[in-house]
Amino acid sequence: MDQGVDWRRNKAGFLAVLTPPLGWLLLFFIVPMAVVWAYSFGTNEGIADIRISGTFANYARAIEPLYLGILAKSLAFAALATLVCLVVGFPVALAISFAPANLKTWLLIGVMLPFWTNLLIRTYALIALLRDEGIINNALGFAFGWAGFEPLRMMNTNFAVLVGLVYVHLPFMVLPLYAALDRLDRSLLEASLDLGAGHIRTIFAIVLPLAAPGIASGLLLTFIPVLGSYLAPDLLGGADSQMIANVIERQFKRANDWPFGAALAFMLMYLTFIGIALQSLARRKRERE
């Protein structure tokens, strides 16, 4: 593979091209993140001052049962939502990748379009469906009103949050799955079917193992954004369905305890880094094989 020219042969050109983006990244991303990290070891002094005292008190508080519980709940929400996305997204990706070319384009647009629309609008749109006098309850009431139907309470519950998380993140799962399934060698599937395996068996024995790298990247691409979700639990959830991002927001906007908020934010960062490290380990292992 072509590796480009040695930068020492054209120092001026190299610096001219690299300095603006690298400077932006350093000043407006790395430095702010480093400040949050430093704040996570800080103490509040007075109303507005924070001293970086090197204390671990914020982290100690972050692993108190209350906050550990919220972290565990966020992980559970993220795992469950990712799993539902996989179960729902896999057949969709399979159907798209085996569809005729012109239909395929339309189906892909169909999956992509919600992905391009505003996240806030999509989350808001769910409220009209899920609330007590919403479309679902109205329809059920119309159908079963004679049997004394009581509206289902869906808004402000964990169920609503899960629906919202799946609704928003489904395209994150379908697209990498589609990319993996589209590259499959069709003759292997035909061979399996010719030799007498049924469709279900072919999918489990041939398609899933071959698409495993795509499934792994789909899982990670879905899990990380779900874990940090703010809007779905905020707008759809109740008091007991708050996720880690909502707690972080509260520390900065309402409780005004920035060091503790910084420690919580970095708990989320550490989890994200673990996820990325696991995936790159898995990729390296595959490449060696």
Binding site: P21, L25, F28, F29, I30, V31, P32, M33, V35, V36, Y39, I224, P225, L227, G228, Y230, A245, I248, E249, F252, W258, G261, A262, A265, F266, L268, M269, T272, I276
Partner: peptide, 24 residues
């Protein structure tokens, strides 16, 4: 490093920029 802002949770980048524009 250039892909970091893509993978870092939005809420973390949000609070980082809040502190940055408030203090730095």
């Amino acid at each position: 490093a250039f892909t970091l802002p893509i993978v870092v949770p939005e809420i973390c980048m949000g609070v980082a920029l809040l502190i940055f524009f408030a203090k730095v």
